[in-house]
Design a protein around this nucleic acid. Structure first.
Length: 830
DNA sequence: ACCTGTGGCGAAACAC
DNA sequence: GTGTTTCGCCAC
């Protein structure tokens, strides 16, 4: 019997039917299976069928209704059963018309109409994207998945019977094998007379001169278009076959033919460049549309393949959740293939000085080949980690591969939540109904423009402290959502008898009668990560299983981390301000109660932020008393997270450094660490830290401070003598908006960017602008335009000051004192 | 067109 | 001059 991985559920434009893209594990190709269930998309309305048929027959006739059914749904907002009319459409395209007719002409209330076709299909058929199925003449059936005994035991300890059976469904998703997927990466190069401009894919005016292909099954090829007088034509470059074409048409045809044979095609920015360019160029060259297996969607956002699945890694890695995952919290980095590859693979694009049109065949081939290679390797490193992650994320979110890789976390969680609603026969609420029932927030945010009050940050005690234990709540907000039963239907529920179950610090109450849906799901995912997959990943000896467990726990982390934020995001369809507000309120309550208790057992608390407390010189016995009290009274896990040999607090919040027992250094929030700080200041700070980190006692710190003074003075004198290069002096700031969008103020990096734009340089969102501070004029100059002698040294001294003061304030050193000595010295020297 | 949240720091620009 | 706002980056 053949096994298949479900990659995608889609709507076939020609047949008007649903179809499935299945990846055959044996043949490693794609099988497209037409829907045989007769499934049709539908929407729900509270209009009765009689009203629809009798009063408005002409609307029914003309708007694509197929037939009507009465069904029972459960309305979570009102906590009662409701009868709905299920309006079944003739085909997916008519859903919009049906919805408009009911809402606008009949003034009826519509539910579940904006859903995508494959969402309801996935639920109705029980098929989950990313899962493996066997195909026989009766259709698809899920493979049997072995569940490890120890996992089952662990879960049966934690969960009562009904919840236990439910969580096992999740375990099946995570235990099912994750197959390798045969795939190919492609990259094209276009001959463009303007090397600074990206060629416009809509016009596709210039010829494609090179195409590189790199596949998981060993295909390594570069196609090159013959051009006049650009020198010799090597057969190979580093074992890569080069193939020369007289005709661009033939080259494109052959490329399309190869791509069509692969189940998954990888690009970097293929949605917006490679595929639309290929398609439009092909059309321009007279290739028939049927022979071009690329469908560029009407919103001009997605390039999908007729047969396989196209993954645009640019989009996938620009997803904030993936950035946090890949770059561990530095979500402003990694926009380009070069940056992402450097971070994940440790190798970047081929460096080149010549422009594409200037390159000879060899250089061009090597350049484009490297891009395809990196694109492929982004999915292949660490034993296909990213491909496996994608498959697991599909299983959790119930999204097709092409949807998952193109959408952000709110769409993933939306899909997951909708699936759970359907599975339980709950009515999916309309956003305006949630807001109408639940109202808005009542607390006031500290930051202007924010919607509600967030976390507590304890004012740190300035100074150096030895032996500091950091305790924290492991994933505080998800734990709060789980323990306090937070969900859109349970917060401010309709029951009078729950109204005294108040959330501290708010007038909101929480339901005692029903288990909240999001509370349940977030709780499952959290428990599976904390109690099952993190421990399994740690102890498993079998490398293959260990890898899978690690992928599972990281996939879970992505969802858990975002589970609170989406409820406070207006764009999330289950947006519920009181849920978000209750989550942070209970977070504040948890840390405040723990703080109180710490004082009660005489543990000095130095600092704390959101979910952590820094405890000074505490006996482990006392810390155990504290964690035990928290677990018994708050019902949340408090753990020892870090142990510092010493920590230095400057007195500012979110701003400290410390040395761990093993000698590692942790630096948080210091300006000298920030990406935009000039290199020479960063280096100075890291030198200072390097000196301090070896100190194990107060005495050693005293002598370290002497060295710190010396290198500070040295850096100062290098600055004064103009020894630093422009590069070392440059501030590097990201442009977060288009240049013309800066209307309220003109920040310095925008000034520098406008200087460059004036000279004709293309400047766009996401570009890093490098500039130096100068005397006179705008006060800044883009690095490309500046001279070393115009640098405003005084400004840089101020930057050294603020950077080092954040450390000096903790050490009790005065910056002026150091500089004072320096100034007198230079005075004497003169 | 894009979209998970709030709190905090520092520099410069802006408002008075 | 002083206080406030905007912006980018970071902590959690």
């Amino acid at each position: 019997m053949s096994k298949y991985l479900l990659l995608s559920v889609f709507y076939d434009n020609k047949t008007g039917k649903a179809a499935l893209k299945l990846y055959s594990l044996e043949k490693e190709n794609i099988v497209i299976l037409e829907d045989t269930t007769g499934h049709k998309p539908y929407l729900l309305t509270d209009f009765s069928p009689q009203d629809l048929i009798e009063k408005y027959p002409e609307v029914i006739k003309h708007k694509g209704f197929d037939h009507l059914e009465i069904i029972e749904k459960y309305d979570l907002l009102r906590d009662k059963k409701v009868l709905m009319t299920k309006v079944i459409a003739k085909d997916p395209l008519s859903i919009g018309g049906v919805r408009g007719a009911i809402r606008d002409i009949l003034r009826g209330h519509v539910w579940e109409a904006k859903i995508k076709y494959h969402h309801c299909y996935t639920y109705d058929t029980g098929l989950i994207p990313g899962m493996i199925y066997e195909l026989d003449n009766r259709g698809l059936k899920p493979i049997k998945v072995e569940l490890p005994k120890d996992v089952i035991e662990k879960l049966s300890e934690i969960y009562s019977e009904d919840l236990f059976n439910e969580i096992l469904k999740w375990v099946r998703l995570f235990q099912a094998p994750i197959p390798r997927i045969r795939r190919i990466a492609v990259d094209i190069e276009v001959y463009s007379p303007e090397p600074d401009r990206v060629p416009n894919p809509l016009e596709a005016a210039h010829p494609i001169i090179a195409i590189s292909l790199y596949s998981s099954d060993g295909l390594r090829e570069v196609f090159l278009l013959k051009r006049n007088s650009i020198g010799e034509k090597p057969d190979h470059v580093n074992n890569v076959r080069l193939k020369y074409f007289d005709s661009e048409t033939e080259m494109i045809k052959e490329t399309l033919k190869i791509l069509d044979e692969y189940p998954v095609v990888l690009t970097f920015n293929g949605d917006h460049f490679d595929f639309p360019y290929l398609k439009n160029r092909a059309i321009k060259l007279g290739i028939e549309t049927e022979k071009i297996p690329v469908e560029w969607s009407s919103n001009m956002e997605e390039a999908r393949l007729r047969r396989g699945v196209h993954i645009d890694l640019f989009k996938f890695f620009n997803n904030r959740s993936m950035q946090i995952y890949a770059f561990s919290n530095k979500y402003n980095e990694g926009k380009t293939l070069d940056e992402i590859s450097l971070a994940l693979l440790g190798e970047g694009k081929m460096e080149h000085e010549k422009t594409i049109p200037e390159m000879d065949y060899r250089e061009l081939a090597m350049y484009t080949y490297k891009d395809a290679e990196l694109t492929y390797k982004l999915t292949a490193f660490d034993d296909d980690l990213v491909m496996k992650l994608i498959v697991l994320l599909m299983r959790i979110s119930k999204l097709s591969m092409d949807d998952l890789t193109r959408h952000n976390i709110s769409a993933w969680i939306k899909s997951l939540m909708y699936y759970e609603h359907r599975r339980n026969n709950y009515l999916i609420p309309n956003p305006e109904d949630i807001l109408r029932f639940k109202g808005h927030t009542v607390t006031k945010a500290i930051i202007k423009g924010k919607k509600y009050l967030g976390a507590i940050v304890i004012d740190p005690l300035p100074g150096i402290f030895f032996k500091v234990f950091v305790v924290d709540f492991a994933s505080l907000y998800p734990s709060v959502i789980k323990r306090w039963n937070l969900s859109y239907e349970t917060v401010r529920c309709p029951h009078e008898e729950c109204k005294d179950n108040l959330v501290p610090g708010t007038p909101h109450w929480v339901c005692r009668k029903r288990k909240g849906l999001s509370s349940k799901i977030v709780g499952f995912l959290r428990d599976l990560r904390v109690y099952v997959y993190k421990p399994l990943a740690k102890k498993e000896k079998n490398e293959i299983l260990k890898h899978q467990y690690n992928v599972v726990q990281s996939a879970l982390k992505v969802f858990i981390n975002a589970s609170y934020g989406v409820f406070g995001a207006e764009t999330f369809p289950l947006y519920c301000p009181p849920v978000a507000e209750c989550t942070t309120a209970l977070g504040r309550y948890s840390i405040a109660k723990t703080l109180e208790k710490a004082y009660e057992v005489n543990i000095p608390v130095l600092y704390g932020d959101t979910d952590s407390l820094f405890l000074w010189n505490a006996r482990e016995k006392d810390i155990n008393t504290l964690t035990k009290w928290v677990s018994e009274n708050l019902n949340i896990d408090l753990e020892i997270d870090k142990i510092y040999k010493w920590v230095a607090f400057s007195g500012r919040k979110k701003n400290y450094m410390g040395v761990f027992e093993n000698g590692d250094v942790g630096v948080k929030g210091l300006v000298g660490k920030k990406r935009n700080t000039p290199e020479f200041i960063k280096k100075l700070l890291y030198d200072v830290i390097e000196i301090l980190k070896s100190a194990g006692s107060m005495d050693e710190l005293e002598s370290a401070i002497g060295k710190v003074k010396a290198i500070t003075q040295e850096s100062y004198s290098l600055l004064k003598k103009g020894k630093f290069t422009l590069d070392e002096l440059a501030f590097r700031v990201v442009l977060t908006k288009p240049l013309e969008a800066y209307v309220k103020t003109t920040p310095q990096h925008v000034k520098a960017a406008r200087q460059l734009a004036k000279l004709g340089k293309q400047i766009g969102v996401g570009d890093v602008i490098s500039f130096v501070k100068i005397k006179g004029g705008d006060g800044v100059k883009a690095i490309q335009l500046a001279r070393i002698d115009e640098v405003d040294q005084e400004k840089y001294v101020e930057h050294i000051r603020t950077t080092l003061e954040q450390v000096f304030d903790a050490l009790g050193i005065s910056f002026d004192e150091i500089m004072g000595i320096r100034l007198i010295e230079s005075f004497i020297n003169q």
